[in-house]
Amino acid sequence: MQYHRQRVISGKGVGRAEFAEALRGLAVDAQDRLYAVGDSKLVVFSLQGELLESWATERPGYSVAVTTSGTVYVGQPGQVQLFDPDGKPLDTWRDADRMGLVTAIGFGGDFVLLADAKDRCIRRYDQHGKYLGEIGRDNRMKGFLIPNRHLDFAVDAAGVIHAGNPGKHRVERYALDGQLLGHWGRFDGRDPAGFSGCCNPTNVALTRGGHLVVTTKAEPLVKVYTTDGRLLALVGQGDFDPNCKNMDVAVDSQGRIYVIDTARLQICVFAPADSDSTTQPAQPGAGETVRP
């Protein structure tokens, strides 16, 4: 399985489609529109990198997710803001104790799931923001091990949560009721199938085909695995600033992978080599920068 770098979207700057200080969260909606949050704003791009929308958030965004009906959730320090598809604020769930730093948002069954990096766990809410319970905290470490201060997860079609536990060099699977179903992953600084450094993988996404896409730091990389941990592809070697960490990742319906370069404040797009024949692959090391 191979991917090529297709293009680069956004970048460091003060324009509407750029980010001045931080770019932290990504999501792709059902129409394959790309949502990016950072600074104190949200930007919506077409998959070609054209600016579609941009609106302000109350606080700096750390994560973003979009429901099938188009409601946009933005995770922030101490709260989650909800917007309609046009950017009109719908609601704000405030809970400084349980939403210390919301670094991931997902949907499973009728639940909204929020990762709180401050408290090192995932929390389950109903669709009106009522707190229902915790996931990943019923262990002797009282939560995930995230020295990198970032907790990320993805939810598959069956409602299974796949969460990175970087301090243990694992991806763990949880049921929506919080039961630990299993885990895979191991430390290895030489074998690319393992996870190196103090704490990897940092970020997690799922393809529609059910593969797991994770990112790692030091060295910044994208890796594609089966859900039981068989390495399928290494993506983006040499494409990211080496200072990147906690690079959020999202996948569209065509299997294209979107990854944040957290140092250059760019979104790198990688397409499977065996698809997307309508787009020309970039020359090695030379991605097309799109700044609408």
């Binding site: 091990l145 301090g167 060099h169 191991r186 430390f187 600084g189 030091a218």
Partner: peptide, 15 residues
């Protein structure tokens, strides 16, 4: 307080 500290271990050495 990591389990595998890159300052303590040579993380490129064999496992």
């Amino acid at each position: 307080r990591c389990y595998i500290c890159p300052a303590y271990f040579d993380i490129k050495s064999a496992v």
